[in-house]
Every structure is written in C-alpha cells, then in structure tokens.
C-alpha cells in the first residue's frame, strides 16, 4: 500500500460525513447532487492545501469530531470556527497545520455556524460512488456516516500548501440575511412578499436536506387551495412551501423533484450561509428584483 497516513476516528459528534462537490448530472436517474453543504468553505480547505476540489473532506456537524493521526498529515479546518485542539493545544482555523503521528485533533462546538470541514493534504483514499465520495443522506448513496473506530486512509500528497492563512468572515451569530429571487410558482401563494416581511427561526428539524423555517405560515392563494402541483425539479436554494405554510429552504441533499410551490430561490452565493445557520438562529429574506 502506497498510503501516506491514516486518520482514526475517535468521536464523531452529532454527524460527521465525507463530502466533496457531489455528483451532478444524474438527476434524470433520480440521484441528487449532494456534496458539501457549505461549498465555499469546502473549496477554501482544498485551496489552502494547494489541491483541487476532487478530494473529499470531513463535514462535522456541530463539532464533537476527534481523530488521531497515524503518520503525519497536513490538515486544515474551514467553515464554522470553534475551539479546536491538537493534544489540548489550540489549533488554527483556516490555516493549514501538521498533525503528527499519534496526535489527536479535537473539534469543539462551533462558536458561530454549524458545519466545520476537515480537509487533509492528499485527500482520503475512499472509493467514490457514482463519481463522488459524498454521502447523500436522503438517498443513502455514498460512504456511510463516520463512526468511532473508522480509519480513513490518506493518499500521498501532490502539490504544496500555498497560503498560510485565509482571511475569511466567520458565519454570523446574528440574523442570517439571504438574498432571493421570487420563484416561478409564487402565484400559488396569497402574498409572496410576506416571505421577506418577517423574521424566520431555523427549526430543530433542519438537516442537510433543508432548513425548516418557523414563522407565520405563508398561505396559499385562495384559487390554489387544495390544488396539487405536478412534481417538478428542485434546486439547492429553492424555498418550497408545503400546505402547512412553513417554508423549507433546500440544501445539498434536497430531493430531485418536489410537488409543492417554490415561492423564492436563494441566490447561489448565499446558500452556503444558509447551510451554516444553527437551529434557533433567525433568518430573513431580501427579495431581489430581476
């Protein structure tokens, strides 16, 4: 085996998954793209290690991940920052560092944001499924969620880290403001701009499929009450309104199609910030004119 090092998973926290940029192009087969929920943070990790986005990272949800290195490996943490340590000494955020054989890296609960990415130089030697190492939590395609005792082999690195530290803005602690365009089914709702007139709260039932938002229900247009919309394709960022009126903002593992009206679609550049919103955090939409 030409393997360079390994990471042994000691603890996973609430959910730790391998994710890359997903498997686009298979929607007609019923397979969604999946991939890192916060793509920007994932890509930053790859860039800081001087490698392309083909390698998967560990996406740790709300901290609690700890790994022990077997052999030395260069790693970087991006996304939600928190109290990370290497053998009880503070580890940097958004700056690559060397994890020596035997050292334990622990990622604590984020101070802001929800999802932290652990990228390794060389990438994890895990077999791709349909061209991606991403776990799709909706369809079950891809590697199983990480569990204590798992050993992740690391490939020998190519390329050199190019940047010492990246000046990136941390996810906000306050209200997450998301720009959005009205959707093509907004006329199914009585008052589509009501979406931006209130502050929504991220529900505990949110996951990689979508952010579930609590607030005053968005009511159906009287002409459409009880009507059924034939299922149609969904995108990441689509804000769908089921009959109960509480919107769902779809994230990486959204279903390929859905049968409820899409009132608005969050701009691509803002979806990553939605993916870092923590249950209980507040969200506002700002509707953009085309």
């Amino acid at each position: 085996m030409n393997l360079h090092a390994e990471l042994e998973v000691l603890e996973t926290g609430p959910l730790a998954l391998l994710e890359d940029l997903g498997r686009p192009g298979l929607a007609a087969q019923g397979v969604g793209r999946s991939g890192a929920a916060d793509r920007g943070s994932f890509l930053l990790g790859a860039r800081l290690l001087g490698q392309g986005p083909a390698h998967a990272a560990v996406e740790a949800t709300y901290g609690g991940l700890s790994v022990r290195a077997r052999g030395s490996v260069t790693v970087v943490l991006t996304g939600a920052p928190g109290p990370a340590t290497v053998d009880d000494r503070p580890a940097p955020h958004a700056a690559p560092f060397l994890l020596r054989g035997g050292q334990v890296l622990r990622i604590g609960q984020p101070t802001t944001g929800l999802r932290t990415y652990l990228s390794v130089r060389g990438g994890f030697a895990v077999a791709p499924v349909l061209g991606s190492r991403s776990t799709d939590t909706l369809s079950g395609i891809g590697p199983a969620p990480l569990k204590p005792g798992d050993v992740l082999p690391v490939e020998p690195p190519v390329g050199e880290p190019t940047v010492d530290v990246a000046p990136v803005a941390d996810p906000t602690e306050g209200v997450v403001v998301l720009r959005a365009l009205l959707g093509h089914r907004d006329h199914w709702l009585a008052d589509p701009p009501a979406l931006e007139r209130q502050t929504w709260t991220v529900s505990l039932h949110s996951d990689r499929v979508g952010l579930r938002l609590d607030g005053d229900p968005l009511e159906r247009h009287p002409d459409r009450t009880g009507a059924e919309l034939p299922s149609e394709g969904l995108v990441r960022g689509a804000v769908q309104v089921p009959p109960g009126g509480q919107p769902v903002l779809f994230l990486a593992d959204h279903p390929v199609t859905g049968g409820y009206p899409v009132v608005a679609v969050v701009l691509e550049a803002d979806v990553d910030r939605a993916a870092q919103a923590v249950p209980g955090q507040q969200v506002r939409f700002r509707l953009q004119r085309r």
Partner: peptide, 18 residues
C-alpha cells in the same frame, strides 16, 4: 448546462454557475 431534471410537465435546466 450542469444537470437536467425532467418531470411531469416541466424540464428543469441547471447551469454550472450563475
């Protein structure tokens, strides 16, 4: 064009980037 999603009465076309 990144992905195409046929459904009952619609065809969704997803671009690589905005």
């Amino acid at each position: 064009l990144l992905d195409v999603v046929p459904a009952a009465r619609t065809l969704l076309l997803v671009a690589d980037t905005p």
